[in-house]
């Protein structure tokens, strides 16, 4: 009798301590900037944190490194139990993170890796090199049969964004398989209006561009605009179609691929990234050892299979 009572008490104590433990946990979420795919990850983080019963403090740095620094310091002051951070610029917030480390707060970097940091305990994010590679590979498969010199337009993201740099690297690696290809690279700073202008001008200078790679698929509508302008708007499979691939997984990319304008996009798994970030934080708070690098490669979908996979695409509405 007393044994049963004892275990009931033990379980109750465990339950209540877990409850109170969960109630006590506050996660500090430092976001670099609010835009569509970032919101996708932060929403996933918020959902998972809510599920775990954590309190969440969100701060947004609006693209300013200094602001992010002080915001992280503010999180440290507020004695959060863990910090999830996506850095404005992967090199900028070291000071604040070291402050966190000194205060004993575990730090999980998400989406942007901080390889040189002395304070980050774990990273979860996309495998941008493999994402770029996948998009490039599909492009190569489409262009393989063509003879003569092939000109390809690459719309670069922001040149100080590691994900943009890595996507470009993967893409270029894939294109090495084609012997006679020339890649025209134009920077867009992730801005669609600039992508529009860059694409327009690129096609002016090289009317015979056979393929376009967009580092973010939100720029695909701009590509559509230009191709319509110059009467080169042909769907997948049609004669004269310009191969278009991209990385991200937004609604723009989804729609363009579904309708057969774009050949395919790499969809990042934002939900899993968000969940994993919170799980890593939980593990670190509990003092467990975690893997330092947790990359989540995206999935490549073509116009054929994208609609059936709609549920897994974060941007698809």
């Amino acid at each position: 009798m007393s044994k049963v009572l004892g275990s009931i008490v033990a379980i109750a104590m465990l339950a209540s301590s877990t409850l109170s433990f969960a109630k006590d946990i506050t996660i500090g979420l430092s976001v670099d900037q609010l835009f569509e795919s970032r919101v996708g990850v932060t929403d996933a983080i918020k959902a998972e944190a809510a599920k775990q019963g954590y309190k969440l403090i969100e701060v947004v740095a609006d693209g300013d490194a200094q602001t992010q620094n002080s915001q992280i310091q503010s999180l440290v002051t507020q004695e959060v139990d863990a910090i999830l951070v996506c850095a404005v610029d992967q090199n900028t917030i070291e000071r604040a993170l070291i402050g966190a480390k000194r205060a004993g707060i575990p730090v999980v970097a998400y989406d942007r890796a901080l390889p040189d940091s002395r304070a980050v305990d774990a990273f979860v994010g996309p495998d941008s090199i493999s994402d770029g590679l996948a998009a490039g590979q599909h492009m190569v498969d489409q262009l393989k049969g063509l003879s003569g010199d092939i000109v390809v337009l690459e719309l670069l993201g922001a040149l100080n964004d590691q994900n943009g740099i890595d996507r470009s690297k993967g893409f270029n690696d894939a294109l090495k398989q084609l012997p006679n290809v020339e890649i025209v690279a134009m920077p867009t700073d992730w801005d669609s209006a600039r992508a529009l202008a860059a694409t327009q001008n690129a096609f002016q200078a090289n009317p015979d561009i056979k393929a376009v790679f967009a580092a973010t698929d939100t720029q695909i509508p701009s590509i559509e605009t230009v191709l319509t302008d110059i009467d080169k708007m042909k769907s997948v499979g049609e004669e004269g179609h310009v191969v278009v691939t991209g990385v991200n997984g937004s609604n723009d990319g989804y729609e363009a691929t579904r309708k057969g304008f774009a050949d395919g996009i790499v969809v990042m798994d934002l939900a899993l990234t968000g969940q994993t970030a919170v799980h890593l934080a939980t593990a670190l708070i509990n003092g467990e050892k975690v893997e330092m690098t947790n990359v989540i490669p995206g999935s490549f979908y073509t116009s054929e299979n994208i609609e059936s996979n709609k549920a897994t695409i974060w941007g698809a509405k």
């Binding site: 835009f35 669609s192 209006a193 529009l196 939100t218 695909i220 509508p221 701009s222 723009d252």
Partner: peptide, 13 residues
């Protein structure tokens, strides 16, 4: 016009 050309509302447009 800009909205029409870039296909929709983009962050910070």
């Amino acid at each position: 016009i800009l909205l029409a050309r870039v296909g929709g509302l983009q962050s910070g447009i």
